[in-house]
Simulated scan of single mutants.
Amino acid sequence: MKKLISVAVGGLLGGVALAASGFASAADILLYPTGPAQDSSFVRFVDGGTHGVEVTAAGSKARLSLDAANPASHFLPIAAGKPVAGTLTSGGAHQDVSATVQPGEFVSIVALDGTHAVTVREKPDDFNALKASVALYNLDARCAAPTLKVAGRDVVLLDGVAAGQTKRRQVNPVTLSVQLSCGGQPVGQALSLGTLVAGQRYTVFLVPAGAQSRIFFANDAVSH
Protein backbone atom coordinates (compact mmCIF):
# COMPACT_ATOMS: atom_id res chain seq x y z
CA MET A 1 0.00 0.00 0.00
CA LYS A 2 2.82 2.36 0.85
CA LYS A 3 6.04 2.75 -1.11
CA LEU A 4 8.67 5.31 -1.99
CA ILE A 5 8.37 6.81 -5.47
CA SER A 6 10.29 9.25 -7.66
CA VAL A 7 8.51 12.49 -8.57
CA ALA A 8 8.03 13.59 -12.24
CA VAL A 9 4.72 13.29 -14.01
CA GLY A 10 5.17 11.95 -17.55
CA GLY A 11 1.87 10.69 -18.90
CA LEU A 12 -0.30 13.34 -17.25
CA LEU A 13 0.49 15.93 -19.93
CA GLY A 14 -2.57 18.15 -20.36
CA GLY A 15 -4.21 16.64 -17.28
CA VAL A 16 -1.88 18.43 -14.91
CA ALA A 17 -2.38 21.73 -16.69
CA LEU A 18 -6.13 21.23 -16.57
CA ALA A 19 -6.03 20.54 -12.84
CA ALA A 20 -3.83 23.54 -12.20
CA SER A 21 -6.31 25.85 -13.92
CA GLY A 22 -9.50 24.15 -12.79
CA PHE A 23 -9.38 23.88 -9.00
CA ALA A 24 -12.47 26.04 -8.45
CA SER A 25 -14.54 24.76 -11.37
CA ALA A 26 -13.93 21.12 -10.52
CA ALA A 27 -14.68 21.48 -6.82
CA ASP A 28 -18.37 20.65 -7.21
CA ILE A 29 -17.96 17.62 -9.50
CA LEU A 30 -19.12 14.34 -7.99
CA LEU A 31 -16.42 11.69 -7.98
CA TYR A 32 -18.69 8.76 -8.83
CA PRO A 33 -21.97 9.75 -10.50
CA THR A 34 -22.19 6.22 -11.97
CA GLY A 35 -19.02 4.61 -10.66
CA PRO A 36 -15.58 4.58 -12.31
CA ALA A 37 -15.17 3.43 -15.92
CA GLN A 38 -13.43 0.06 -16.17
CA ASP A 39 -10.82 1.37 -18.60
CA SER A 40 -10.02 4.55 -16.68
CA SER A 41 -7.71 5.23 -13.76
CA PHE A 42 -7.01 8.33 -11.73
CA VAL A 43 -4.08 9.97 -9.94
CA ARG A 44 -3.78 13.01 -7.70
CA PHE A 45 -0.91 14.79 -6.00
CA VAL A 46 -0.97 15.91 -2.38
CA ASP A 47 1.31 18.19 -0.36
CA GLY A 48 1.55 16.54 3.03
CA GLY A 49 4.23 18.92 4.26
CA THR A 50 4.30 22.62 5.03
CA HIS A 51 6.74 24.07 2.49
CA GLY A 52 4.75 23.71 -0.75
CA VAL A 53 5.37 21.30 -3.64
CA GLU A 54 5.56 21.84 -7.39
CA VAL A 55 4.76 18.93 -9.67
CA THR A 56 6.20 18.99 -13.18
CA ALA A 57 4.96 16.58 -15.85
CA ALA A 58 7.66 14.82 -17.86
CA GLY A 59 7.35 15.51 -21.56
CA SER A 60 4.86 18.37 -21.52
CA LYS A 61 6.52 20.26 -18.64
CA ALA A 62 3.06 21.26 -17.42
CA ARG A 63 3.20 22.34 -13.78
CA LEU A 64 0.95 22.07 -10.77
CA SER A 65 1.61 23.96 -7.53
CA LEU A 66 0.37 22.71 -4.16
CA ASP A 67 0.50 24.55 -0.85
CA ALA A 68 -1.32 24.89 2.46
CA ALA A 69 -4.24 26.68 0.79
CA ASN A 70 -4.56 24.01 -1.95
CA PRO A 71 -2.80 20.89 -0.62
CA ALA A 72 -4.35 18.40 -3.04
CA SER A 73 -5.03 18.35 -6.76
CA HIS A 74 -8.19 16.91 -8.18
CA PHE A 75 -8.01 13.33 -9.42
CA LEU A 76 -6.62 13.41 -12.95
CA PRO A 77 -7.99 10.80 -15.42
CA ILE A 78 -5.15 8.84 -17.04
CA ALA A 79 -4.81 5.75 -19.22
CA ALA A 80 -4.98 2.60 -17.12
CA GLY A 81 -1.95 0.35 -16.91
CA LYS A 82 0.47 2.86 -18.40
CA PRO A 83 3.18 4.45 -16.23
CA VAL A 84 3.13 8.18 -15.59
CA ALA A 85 6.21 10.10 -14.53
CA GLY A 86 7.13 13.57 -13.28
CA THR A 87 9.22 15.60 -10.81
CA LEU A 88 8.44 16.89 -7.32
CA THR A 89 10.19 20.08 -6.29
CA SER A 90 10.17 21.59 -2.80
CA GLY A 91 12.56 24.09 -1.28
CA GLY A 92 15.16 23.50 -3.98
CA ALA A 93 15.06 19.69 -3.61
CA HIS A 94 13.96 17.53 -6.54
CA GLN A 95 12.81 13.93 -6.81
CA ASP A 96 11.56 11.97 -9.81
CA VAL A 97 8.44 9.83 -9.38
CA SER A 98 6.55 7.30 -11.46
CA ALA A 99 3.45 5.18 -10.94
CA THR A 100 1.25 2.75 -12.84
CA VAL A 101 -2.46 2.85 -12.01
CA GLN A 102 -4.78 -0.07 -12.65
CA PRO A 103 -8.29 0.17 -14.21
CA GLY A 104 -10.79 1.65 -11.77
CA GLU A 105 -8.04 2.55 -9.30
CA PHE A 106 -7.59 5.91 -7.57
CA VAL A 107 -4.00 6.66 -6.56
CA SER A 108 -2.82 9.52 -4.34
CA ILE A 109 0.86 10.48 -4.44
CA VAL A 110 1.56 12.27 -1.18
CA ALA A 111 4.73 14.33 -0.70
CA LEU A 112 5.98 14.27 2.89
CA ASP A 113 8.90 16.33 4.21
CA GLY A 114 9.32 18.04 0.86
CA THR A 115 9.92 15.43 -1.83
CA HIS A 116 9.81 12.16 0.11
CA ALA A 117 6.65 10.62 -1.35
CA VAL A 118 4.34 7.70 -0.66
CA THR A 119 1.47 6.26 -2.68
CA VAL A 120 -1.97 5.34 -1.40
CA ARG A 121 -4.27 3.22 -3.56
CA GLU A 122 -8.04 2.82 -3.48
CA LYS A 123 -10.37 0.85 -5.74
CA PRO A 124 -13.74 1.96 -4.38
CA ASP A 125 -17.01 0.19 -5.06
CA ASP A 126 -19.22 1.84 -2.46
CA PHE A 127 -20.89 4.72 -4.30
CA ASN A 128 -24.11 5.84 -2.62
CA ALA A 129 -25.95 8.87 -4.01
CA LEU A 130 -27.69 9.43 -0.66
CA LYS A 131 -24.58 9.36 1.54
CA ALA A 132 -21.24 11.12 1.74
CA SER A 133 -18.05 9.06 2.04
CA VAL A 134 -15.16 9.93 4.37
CA ALA A 135 -11.77 8.19 4.39
CA LEU A 136 -8.72 8.34 6.67
CA TYR A 137 -5.31 7.93 5.00
CA ASN A 138 -2.75 7.17 7.72
CA LEU A 139 0.68 8.43 6.65
CA ASP A 140 2.17 8.85 10.13
CA ALA A 141 3.48 5.70 11.82
CA ARG A 142 4.24 7.67 14.98
CA CYS A 143 0.55 8.19 15.76
CA ALA A 144 -0.37 5.19 17.91
CA ALA A 145 -3.88 3.80 17.40
CA PRO A 146 -5.07 6.78 15.30
CA THR A 147 -8.73 7.55 15.75
CA LEU A 148 -11.01 10.12 14.16
CA LYS A 149 -13.89 11.13 16.39
CA VAL A 150 -16.76 13.49 15.80
CA ALA A 151 -15.54 16.71 17.41
CA GLY A 152 -17.11 17.42 20.78
CA ARG A 153 -18.66 13.95 21.01
CA ASP A 154 -17.42 10.53 22.05
CA VAL A 155 -18.37 9.09 18.66
CA VAL A 156 -15.73 7.23 16.64
CA LEU A 157 -15.84 7.96 12.93
CA LEU A 158 -12.80 5.93 11.81
CA ASP A 159 -10.17 3.92 13.68
CA GLY A 160 -7.97 0.85 13.32
CA VAL A 161 -6.10 2.27 10.32
CA ALA A 162 -2.51 1.01 10.22
CA ALA A 163 0.31 3.19 8.88
CA GLY A 164 0.23 3.27 5.09
CA GLN A 165 -3.36 2.01 5.03
CA THR A 166 -6.79 3.54 4.51
CA LYS A 167 -10.32 3.09 5.77
CA ARG A 168 -13.52 4.64 4.43
CA ARG A 169 -17.13 4.78 5.60
CA GLN A 170 -20.45 6.20 4.49
CA VAL A 171 -21.94 9.01 6.58
CA ASN A 172 -25.04 11.17 6.43
CA PRO A 173 -24.53 14.45 4.52
CA VAL A 174 -24.31 16.73 7.55
CA THR A 175 -22.01 19.47 8.81
CA LEU A 176 -19.05 17.61 10.30
CA SER A 177 -15.93 18.41 12.34
CA VAL A 178 -13.46 15.72 13.39
CA GLN A 179 -10.87 15.37 16.13
CA LEU A 180 -7.70 13.27 15.82
CA SER A 181 -6.47 11.21 18.75
CA CYS A 182 -3.23 9.22 19.01
CA GLY A 183 -2.86 6.66 21.77
CA GLY A 184 -6.19 7.76 23.20
CA GLN A 185 -5.15 11.41 23.56
CA PRO A 186 -6.49 14.28 21.42
CA VAL A 187 -3.92 15.82 19.08
CA GLY A 188 -4.25 19.31 17.61
CA GLN A 189 -7.45 21.20 17.01
CA ALA A 190 -10.72 19.91 15.59
CA LEU A 191 -10.87 19.96 11.78
CA SER A 192 -14.03 21.21 10.08
CA LEU A 193 -14.99 19.35 6.91
CA GLY A 194 -17.85 21.78 6.31
CA THR A 195 -21.23 20.53 5.17
CA LEU A 196 -20.81 17.18 3.45
CA VAL A 197 -22.67 16.67 0.18
CA ALA A 198 -24.56 13.49 -0.70
CA GLY A 199 -22.76 11.49 -3.37
CA GLN A 200 -19.40 13.16 -2.76
CA ARG A 201 -16.26 11.67 -1.25
CA TYR A 202 -13.74 13.21 1.14
CA THR A 203 -10.31 12.18 2.41
CA VAL A 204 -8.73 13.11 5.75
CA PHE A 205 -4.93 12.85 5.58
CA LEU A 206 -2.97 12.03 8.76
CA VAL A 207 0.64 13.20 8.29
CA PRO A 208 3.67 13.94 10.48
CA ALA A 209 4.12 17.53 11.65
CA GLY A 210 7.38 17.96 13.54
CA ALA A 211 7.11 16.19 16.88
CA GLN A 212 3.36 15.71 16.50
CA SER A 213 0.80 14.69 13.90
CA ARG A 214 -1.72 16.74 11.98
CA ILE A 215 -4.74 16.18 9.77
CA PHE A 216 -6.15 18.01 6.76
CA PHE A 217 -8.74 17.05 4.19
CA ALA A 218 -9.53 17.15 0.48
CA ASN A 219 -12.67 16.74 -1.60
CA ASP A 220 -12.10 13.75 -3.92
CA ALA A 221 -13.25 15.55 -7.07
CA VAL A 222 -12.28 14.44 -10.57
CA SER A 223 -10.84 16.96 -13.04
CA HIS A 224 -12.69 17.05 -16.39
Rank of each mutant, 00 (worst) to 15 (best):
K2R: 12
I5F: 03
S6Y: 05
V7C: 09
V9I: 11
G11L: 02
G14F: 14
G14V: 15
G15V: 00
G15H: 06
A17C: 09
A20K: 11
A20D: 15
S21V: 15
A26F: 11
I29A: 13
L30R: 07
L30F: 10
L31H: 04
Y32L: 11
P33C: 14
G35S: 09
P36S: 09
A37N: 11
Q38A: 11
D39G: 02
D39P: 01
V43Y: 01
V46H: 01
D47T: 09
H51R: 05
G52T: 04
G52L: 06
E54R: 11
V55I: 13
T56P: 03
A57C: 05
A58S: 13
G59A: 13
G59F: 02
S60F: 02
A62D: 06
L64S: 02
L66R: 10
D67H: 04
P71K: 00
A72Q: 06
S73E: 10
F75R: 02
F75H: 00
A79K: 14
A80T: 05
A80H: 06
A85D: 03
A85N: 09
G86F: 06
G86S: 05
G92V: 01
A93S: 15
H94G: 12
Q95F: 08
D96N: 14
V97H: 06
V101G: 01
P103A: 07
A111H: 01
A111M: 09
D113R: 09
D113A: 15
A117R: 01
T119V: 14
V120E: 04
R121L: 04
K123E: 01
D126L: 06
N128S: 05
L130Q: 06
S133H: 12
N138A: 03
D140W: 03
R142C: 05
R142P: 00
A144R: 15
A145R: 14
P146F: 03
T147Y: 01
A151G: 13
G152A: 00
R153S: 10
R153W: 04
D154M: 04
D154H: 06
L158V: 09
L158E: 07
D159T: 13
A162T: 08
A162C: 13
A163T: 13
G164T: 09
Q165Y: 01
T166M: 02
V171C: 03
V171L: 08
N172R: 11
N172E: 05
N172A: 15
N172M: 12
T175M: 09
S177Y: 06
S181Q: 08
C182M: 07
C182T: 00
P186R: 02
V187G: 04
G188K: 13
G188E: 09
Q189C: 05
A190L: 10
A190Q: 02
G194N: 13
V197R: 12
Q200A: 05
Q200K: 13
F205T: 01
L206S: 09
P208K: 10
G210R: 11
S213C: 06
I215Y: 01
I215N: 02
F217I: 14
D220F: 00
D220P: 00
V222Q: 04
S223C: 07
S223L: 10
H224Y: 03
